[in-house]
Simulated scan of single mutants.
Amino acid sequence: MANSATLFAPPPLDSSKAPIENVLELTPVEDVGKDVFTNTRPLWHPPGARGIYGGAAIAQSLAAAMRTVPADFAVHSMHCYFVLAGDSAIPILYHVERVRDGRSFITRTVQARQRGRPIFTTTLSFSKANSGGKKKLEHASSMPSVALPEEPLPGSKRTFDESGGGPFETKKAGIVNRNSPPQDKRIRRFMRSRGRLSDAGGHHAHISALAYITDSFFIGTVSRVHDVPRFSSPAELEKLLNALKNPSDLDDEDIARALKELKEEETADLRRRLQGALDKVAKEGPQEHKEVGMMVSLDHSIYFHNPWAFRADEWMLTEMESPWAGEGRGLVLQKIWSKDGILIATCTQEGVVRLKQDEPPRSKL
């Protein structure tokens, strides 16, 4: 296999497509097999992560599976496991297996491999449109009453968003029950892909973009509801940003802006935590220092409820909560609504969330 980030030389970016469509583009590898695909462009390795951004493996596996399914079927669930950290310096091969083709449901599995070893695996189920009959049982969680972000005026400078560049953008939408126990807090964000998804990409482009975005800020919810910082200092963050591998979807301006904003955000959070800690010390005595030592996703599930009822390039509201954490792991639930208030997806993720210890760890993953 070639010693490069892609198996084939990447073509020029397609200006008729949104950035996320270019990022997620796949190339068939017919010499290997009928249902084998590879990433067309280099994949992003986020700062501080052990491997590639997990959303890329999720979304490209979904895109590969959708290529083997008739157009009148839509994915309704996918269950994923992150097996090994993906290396952004070498290509990924996505092997699709056609498990079952039924009249109402179709099942596929996809295994993502590097150097012949599986790094990611997922099972997906597709259902035929309008196969539920005329009589239906229907209900859905209501979208919280949160105002959509204001759009910048024409010609104005782009406002910073917390994603720090890349093919999608995010904006905070507040924390519910901020002063409550961790299990009662709710973290809200608005998310959308940048630009406008092409008409040629159709339904598949929006589903893939949504899958890509679902992994953003997900397992980090566990540390956030505990008020434990992901990065222990602005200096550590700057070091990680400078060590970015294959930042194909970031530029120098985005990185500088991300660093400045995250430093300011970290400073504000530190002040808030310090004041909270001082208040707690005054009441309960000295508190134990907590700092994230390791955070990595183990599994990721998406239930797609209304796959034709949204656009991924329009604002979507996501609300995350963590009902449980323990044994060095944490669980997060996520609901996603379209801008029109339609519940379009529910996601779950469990990951390793370990704090830095006063003594060396006794075991490794």
Rank of each mutant, 00 (worst) to 15 (best):
I219T: 04
I219F: 05
V222Y: 02
S223A: 11
S223R: 07
R224Q: 14
R224I: 10
V225W: 03
V225I: 11
V225L: 08
H226M: 05
H226C: 07
H226N: 14
H226V: 02
V228R: 03
V228D: 02
V228W: 01
P229H: 03
P229F: 06
P229N: 03
S232H: 11
S233R: 01
S233A: 01
P234E: 09
P234D: 10
A235S: 09
A235R: 06
L237I: 08
E238W: 06
K239G: 06
K239Q: 13
A243E: 12
A243H: 08
L244K: 03
L244T: 07
K245M: 01
K245D: 00
P247D: 11
S248Q: 06
S248L: 00
S248W: 10
S248V: 09
D249W: 15
D249E: 13
D251G: 09
D251Q: 08
D251W: 10
D252V: 11
E253T: 12
E253Q: 13
I255W: 03
A256C: 06
L259C: 09
E261K: 13
E261D: 01
L262S: 12
E264T: 13
E264G: 00
E264A: 15
E264M: 12
E265G: 05
E266H: 11
D269V: 09
D269R: 15
D269A: 15
D269L: 12
L270N: 12
L270D: 09
R273K: 10
L274F: 10
Q275N: 14
G276Q: 12
G276Y: 08
L278V: 08
L278T: 14
D279N: 11
K280A: 15
K280R: 14
K283L: 12
E284M: 03
E284Q: 15
E284D: 14
E284I: 11
G285N: 01
E288M: 10
E288I: 15
E288C: 09
H289Q: 12
H289I: 14
K290C: 06
V292A: 02
V292H: 01
V292W: 07
G293F: 01
G293S: 01
M294G: 05
M295A: 12
V296T: 08
D299E: 05
H300E: 00
H300Y: 05
H300M: 01
I302N: 01
I302S: 03
Y303K: 08
Y303S: 04
H305W: 01
N306D: 04
P307R: 02
P307E: 04
W308E: 11
F310M: 00
A312Y: 03
E314C: 09
E314M: 07
W315R: 05
W315T: 13
M316L: 09
L317M: 06
T318I: 09
T318P: 02
T318R: 01
E319F: 04
E319K: 02
E321L: 11
E321H: 15
S322H: 06
P323H: 03
